[in-house]
């Protein structure tokens, strides 16, 4: 905390660009010269076998992990979280604060200096959107897994991010909860939010994605329009993945 936080809040992040990202741990290259450009408004699925490096890469994009080599740029500038960038993140295991459902959303808005009447109005809108209005006063932690994930996504969406990163948000959820979240995401994408969704669920990717980015062993092997990807993947790893074979 050497310099005071910049005054400007809620700064634009798109386009998000990764250039030559390399991350090494214990002598292993977990991310190996990964470059990508996220722009536009297409719904993007980030796919790949376990251990491919998807979660790590998402964290690097969000500036939660600093790569050993390469740079991430948000809207052509080096990332600075203190500007409260218009970037949302939903983790596989949702992190809900030990407060009421409503307070969880208010917290995210306050972090972007959105308070007062506008804060209240946006809070209620987010609660309604996620179907959590009836639960607004309950402690967030007593909610079911699906409800907590809905809250986490609603909280991320409340500040109207340009880009929403999601790391397997429905991995542990039943079909009903998954459907609720998918509709939430569809709505957000329709509203203009760029979405990058890490998922293992091929069906889910088919239902939602317009573009697929495929990772394997720390590299991006292909970036393709969804229709093309599911019909004719170019990389052998992706082909094996789709065919349900073991990808090593």
């Amino acid at each position: 905390m050497t310099s005071p936080p910049p005054e400007r809040r809620n700064e634009a992040v798109l386009p998000v660009e990764a250039l030559g990202i390399t991350l090494r741990r214990n002598g292993r290259r977990l991310l190996d010269d990964v470059s990508v450009l996220f722009d536009g408004h297409d719904f993007c699925a980030l796919m790949g076998p376990n251990g491919a490096g998807k979660s790590l890469f998402l964290r690097v994009l969000a500036n939660l992990v600093t790569p050993d080599e390469g740079t991430v740029r948000w809207n052509d500038r080096l990332p600075d979280r203190r500007r409260a960038p218009k970037l949302g993140f939903a983790f596989q295991k949702p992190v809900t604060l030990r407060r009421s459902v409503r307070a969880n959303i208010r917290y995210a808005l306050a972090a972007c200096r959105i308070r007062g009447a506008e804060g209240r109005q946006r809070t209620e809108a987010a609660l309604a959107l996620a179907g959590l209005a009836d639960l607004a006063r309950s402690p967030a932690r007593v909610l079911s897994g699906g409800e907590q994930q809905r809250l986490a996504i609603a909280r991320a969406l409340a500040v109207e991010p340009e880009l929403l990163l999601l790391d397997e948000p429905t991995a542990n959820l039943d079909p009903a909860s998954t459907a609720a979240i998918e509709s939430l995401l569809r709505g957000a994408a329709y509203g203009g939010t760029k979405i990058v969704l890490v998922t293992h669920d091929i069906g889910q990717a088919r239902r939602l994605a317009e573009t697929v980015v495929f990772m394997h062993a720390g590299r991006i092997t292909e970036t393709t329009a969804a229709d093309t990807f599911f019909d004719a993947p170019t990389s052998s790893a992706a082909e094996a993945f789709l065919a349900g074979r073991l990808v090593l």
Binding site: R82, R83, A84, L87, G88, F91, V95, A111, C112
Partner: peptide
């Protein structure tokens, strides 16, 4: 990580 994503110092 959640707080950092929200820009909390």
């Amino acid at each position: 990580e959640q707080l950092r994503v929200l820009g909390i110092g």
